[in-house]
Structure formats: C-alpha cells, structure tokens
Amino acid sequence: KRPMNAFMVWARIHRPALAKANPAANNAEISVQLGLEWNKLSEEQKKPYYDEAQKIKEKHREEFPGW
C-alpha cells in the first residue's frame, strides 16, 4: 500500500467533521469538498501535513525497501 501524501494526511483528519456536517453527502461529494478546502489553504497552512507525509514516506521506505 502506498504511503499517504499531504492531502491524504489532512483529509483523514477533516473528513469526519465534513461528513457529520453534511450527512446527505456521499463519499465522492465529500472528497470533492475536501479537495476544494485543501486548495484554499496557504502553503504555510499545508506545511505541517507535507512534513507529516514526508515522515510517513520515510517510515514506509524503511519498512518496505524496494517497494
């Protein structure tokens, strides 16, 4: 399985609240909304998620060399 990128790290945190706020929305609609919200963030706001994604990527590389 591929390691999460910065957007996926961010979305994992924000998806539950968005789903709760929009109970009639299906998963595809929630994903679209998450994408729109992510694109509104500044690079500075995204930086912690890029940092976390890098850590996940490095850990994945250690656990699965050659993947």
Rank of each mutant, 00 (worst) to 15 (best):
K1G: 09
K1E: 14
K1H: 12
K1L: 04
K1N: 14
K1W: 02
R2S: 06
R2A: 04
P3E: 14
P3L: 11
P3H: 13
M4T: 13
N5E: 13
N5G: 08
N5W: 05
N5H: 07
N5M: 04
N5Y: 05
A6E: 03
A6P: 06
A6R: 00
A6T: 01
F7C: 10
F7G: 02
M8P: 05
M8F: 10
M8C: 09
M8I: 08
V9D: 03
V9C: 11
V9G: 03
V9P: 02
W10A: 01
W10H: 04
W10G: 02
W10K: 00
W10Q: 02
W10S: 00
A11N: 03
A11D: 11
A11L: 02
A11E: 09
A11H: 02
R12N: 13
R12T: 13
R12D: 13
I13R: 09
I13N: 09
I13C: 08
I13E: 13
I13F: 05
I13G: 04
H14D: 01
H14C: 03
H14W: 04
R15N: 01
R15C: 03
R15F: 08
R15E: 13
R15I: 00
P16T: 14
P16K: 09
P16F: 04
P16V: 10
A17N: 15
A17I: 15
A17T: 08
A17K: 14
L18K: 03
L18A: 05
L18I: 10
L18D: 00
A19C: 09
A19V: 11
A19Q: 15
A19K: 12
A19I: 11
A19F: 09
K20S: 10
A21S: 10
A21I: 03
A21T: 03
N22T: 06
N22Y: 02
N22S: 08
N22H: 15
P23T: 05
P23Q: 02
P23D: 05
A25V: 06
A25P: 03
A25M: 15
A25H: 09
A25S: 08
A25G: 04
N26F: 02
N26Y: 02
N26Q: 12
N26K: 06
N26V: 04
N27V: 07
N27A: 13
A28V: 07
A28W: 06
E29P: 00
E29Q: 11
E29N: 03
E29D: 13
E29R: 02
I30L: 13
I30S: 02
S31F: 05
S31I: 05
S31Y: 05
S31C: 12
S31K: 14
V32G: 10
V32A: 15
V32H: 03
Q33P: 00
Q33T: 11
Q33R: 09
Q33V: 07
Q33F: 06
L34V: 01
L34R: 01
G35C: 14
G35M: 13
G35V: 11
G35I: 02
G35T: 14
L36K: 14
L36F: 04
L36N: 15
E37K: 14
E37C: 09
E37M: 14
E37V: 05
E37A: 12
E37L: 10
E37I: 02
W38E: 02
W38M: 00
W38F: 01
W38C: 01
W38K: 00
W38D: 06
W38R: 01
N39G: 11
N39R: 10
N39L: 04
N39K: 13
N39W: 01
N39V: 04
N39F: 07
L41V: 00
L41C: 01
L41S: 00
S42L: 01
S42H: 02
S42G: 05
S42Y: 01
E43W: 06
E43F: 06
E43G: 05
E43Q: 07
E43H: 12
E43A: 05
E44R: 08
E44I: 06
E44C: 12
E44P: 06
Q45A: 11
Q45L: 04
K46E: 00
K47T: 10
Y49D: 00
Y49G: 00
Y49F: 11
Y50C: 15
Y50E: 12
D51G: 04
D51K: 10
D51H: 08
D51P: 04
D51A: 09
E52F: 08
E52V: 06
E52R: 07
A53R: 03
Q54Y: 02
Q54T: 08
K55Y: 09
I56P: 13
I56A: 05
I56Y: 13
I56W: 15
K57I: 13
K57V: 13
K57S: 12
E58R: 12
E58F: 06
E58H: 14
K59A: 13
K59E: 14
K59N: 08
K59P: 08
K59Y: 07
H60W: 04
H60R: 14
H60F: 12
H60C: 14
R61H: 09
R61K: 15
R61V: 13
R61G: 11
R61I: 12
R61F: 13
E63W: 08
E63H: 08
F64W: 12
F64G: 15
F64M: 14
F64E: 15
F64N: 11
P65Y: 12
P65D: 14
P65H: 06
G66M: 08
G66D: 15
W67P: 15
W67L: 13
W67G: 15
